[in-house]
Design a protein around this nucleic acid. Structure first.
Lengths: 186, 186
DNA sequence: TCAAAGCATGTAATTAATTACATGTTCGTT
DNA sequence: AACGAACATGTAATTAATTACATGCTTTGA
């Protein structure tokens, strides 16, 4: 049974939890959140501001976050959102829940490969080269970010989860590149 | 400018191309396609029958596939779909196109990890163990499929793309498991 | 001082995807 | 002969996600 007029957010909607998690790190604006989806978690999830702002309103209506109005300069209005205790509880519950699902990777290149029948198809090598370039440069990008964000042990200790997922992403890209190289003709 | 009444399918909608690719391998029914999304390409894309049947109608309306009615037993009606030459052309165009996009992996476990701040958080080890189990068993599953689907070189030569992506998936899971093991406490 | 890039927030329209609803047949096993 | 699993096809309702529309302020550098 669903109550009238009050739309609820589905259990499986992960965006809400990601926003709660980001706000738990420190209070920030919708704009800041949108940046985070381009940078540190862009490897793992993406969301546009047009999805973020409505979600902030829903979470606030649900009493899981609250905002404070601030002004930059003369009149640029910002809304800095903070977790409420209900929001923090919901976040903890989510993180503590098991994650028994394998999500499909949705890699378009891999899909295309699947539809190529023979090893001597002339399209294979150019495709491999393109992906090699792409993932090689992504690997470099991630490695550089690791150097700047985690220059010492202290930085790692202060954001251990962030360190872990960046390390994971680097390993993943690194092996992807190796896999491609294995099938690349010299 | 968009013509009235005739909804078109977006360029970026990949489901249509996957269906074209599957039908190019051999004519089959919507039910068969739904099975394929659970098995051989389930690692890379998923679609429910409720998404597949409408898409088949749209592709047929667009003249890219056509169907033939067949009957199994007394009266079980099936629709066996085949690519038209327009559909084959569209498929070839898609495969030949560059794929310069990095798709986020949407791994819920990784997202949860990101929100854990310190290395001694008691939730980390149980989470790692759960994922280790999950990916270990997925790895076994993939390896078994490789053995049954590609028992010899001839099988590989006849479905080279399929072989490549299965190999890729196995490598990926294998390294994922290694990565997890590296952070697991003995 | 002016222009461009970036900061900041929103809504509308559309499309993609999931979940639920709905129905009927065939095959294999007990 | 009866039952359950698998075959087979669809639609409806809902939710998630993308793309487009829309507006205004601030900072930086030429």
């Amino acid at each position: 049974m669903k109550s009238r007029g009050m739309p609820t957010i589905g259990q499986r909607n992960r965006l809400q939890y990601i926003i709660l998690g980001l706000l738990n790190q420190h209070p920030q604006t919708g704009y800041d959140l949108a940046k985070a989806f381009e940078n540190e978690i862009g490897e793992f999830w993406q969301a546009q501001h047009s999805q973020i702002y409505p979600m902030l309103k829903r979470l606030e209506a649900a009493g899981e976050i609250s905002h404070e109005d601030t002004v930059t300069g003369e009149k640029l209005a910002k809304k800095k959102y903070t977790l409420t205790s209900a929001g923090r509880e919901k976040l903890v519950t989510w993180v503590s829940q098991p994650s028994p699902e394998l999500t499909p990777s949705k890699d378009e290149f891999i899909l295309k490969l699947y539809f190529i029948k023979t090893a001597n198809d002339p399209r294979i090598q150019p495709m491999l080269r393109e992906q090699y370039q792409l993932h090689q440069s992504q690997l470099h990008h991630l490695q550089q970010r690791q150097e700047t964000v985690f220059p010492n042990q202290k930085a790692i200790d202060q954001a251990y989860g962030h360190y872990l997922i960046l390390d994971h992403a680097i390993e993943r890209e690194s092996h992807y590149v190796e896999w491609l190289a294995q099938y690349l003709e010299k």
